[in-house]
Design a protein around this nucleic acid. Sequence first.
DNA 1: ACCTGAACACCGTTCAAGT
DNA 2: ACCTGAACACCGTTCAAGT
Lengths: 304, 304
Amino acid sequence: MESPYLRIAAELRRRIHSGELAPGDKVPSTRVVARDFTVALATAARALAVLKEEGLVEARPRSATVVAATRSRPRRRAGPVELTREGIVREGVAIADAEGLGAVTIRAVAARLGVAAAAVHRHVRGRDELVFGMADLAYGEGRYPAGTLSRRERLETVARTLWQIYRRHPWLPNLTPLDRPLPLPGLLRHGEQLLRALDGLGLAPEAMLTIEVLIYAHVQGLAVHIERETQAMAATGLSSDQWLDTQGRTMSAFVTSGRYPMFTKTITGLGAEGYDFDLDNIFETGLQALLDGLRIESLSRSTS
Amino acid sequence: MESPYLRIAAELRRRIHSGELAPGDKVPSTRVVARDFTVALATAARALAVLKEEGLVEARPRSATVVAATRSRPRRRAGPVELTREGIVREGVAIADAEGLGAVTIRAVAARLGVAAAAVHRHVRGRDELVFGMADLAYGEGRYPAGTLSRRERLETVARTLWQIYRRHPWLPNLTPLDRPLPLPGLLRHGEQLLRALDGLGLAPEAMLTIEVLIYAHVQGLAVHIERETQAMAATGLSSDQWLDTQGRTMSAFVTSGRYPMFTKTITGLGAEGYDFDLDNIFETGLQALLDGLRIESLSRSTS
DNA sequence: ACCTGAACACCGTTCAAGT
DNA sequence: ACCTGAACACCGTTCAAGT
């Protein structure tokens, strides 16, 4: 792989350590990095995110990003801390949240914990098991209120809880095809709520599981796009030519090609500022449509 | 990675080449491989699939799998064939279809085409571009009839066409988060049909795009499970204790744990032969529900 | 008991050298 | 022009050796 963004981060890191970029100096902006290294804005943004994560640079609110004053000490805990499976999995989640699932390597986790790669293998059978544990941890995050909810409200709550988890961990919806069977304790908790909402309606178990799968699929099918959306937002400063730089170039090529008349018509029919791809809104629209369409007895639309 | 199934395949290959397993000999069954190598049935099935793909073993209908009589010659074309981008991409698709996306490495493609890895890089900028091209090729497969269809029928046709493509290429729904912008010509073709079905209803462009995304998400959100389903089916011979071996063990642990009462109740409420996870049926149920729930004007339910 | 260092077998990608 | 071979910088995983 050797991701380009890691290479860029390494180069910028070198400049900082060499003093080429002193504390307080402005770090090249996303746009400048993208131009100088001839990469997409999203890639540049990712490289800068790595440095931010490392504490080498800081975002000055209402201003540029600058080199951090004191190289904030490595986020390692003072003194040797017991190496545990839990700590390893947490570190994996932290890396994935910040840099994506691709950055989660056994070696990276080990380095951030200050141990040898082999030591990690002592607590986790392999990379797959690490990722499995990460998924379980993340799915376990949602909490459900003990209060009483209508069936419809309960179904909506489950879907929204999962959606929020995916918002926090955009890498999560992408790892369905794990090598192991998928039953995660963390995921079953959500299923419990879902099935409870469907209980007592006289539905066959098969029908209940079908509905469960359909709701999961709706959330997950949309959530896989969160990662791209996040990248796109990170890549765009405040300016509005953002869209043009990344998606826009290829898009407009399609529009002018004339081979996709309906696409062209729809795109040009949008307002001047384009389509802000509002995933939250699409999610909610689809959820309501799906639940309406399923016509489950006594599932009146909630007021939320 | 160093997948276990590749290691198993290598060991079986060694036995065949060494003569330990002679042509016509029965190859160890999925179940036997799983036991001997202490891996899941799915892993064993994958290893055997590799050998089948290589032509080293053949499935005898209504009988066991045996070592192939003559080591069928490598599927390379006779004589050197011009190395083209198209040929490279096709080979990538062939590998992904047979062994999954993880098996698609530049080196593997190069080896199967009988060239050096560096030669591949001459036609394809990197692995990402290869995968991008594979996706575009696969999405380009569906054909639409020129005939006249109702709006509803057209939407259903698009969804089903995508579903069939995912059935043929189970790796495809998993690669949303490509590093590049997602507009694939092959994918836009489907969008054209979809938008056409929504044209002339007075819908705002934003609404049309929202509906498009929701239908895509439904298909894709379910299609990511096809790969697992395929593996599960490959892993199960004819016998019925298949399910118990793979998913079942963990599942029944959950059931007996008592921590998931709704899950337990639903699972035990299923018929004796369990739930046959019929993705095609779930897909169709969800599609109808979604289209119904969207309440788009003049979208009467089709008879299909 | 737990971790390290080194090794092995893989990657993607680059580049001078060959044809 | 096109491909090769070798190299480089990364992986995951294993294992004898250390503490």
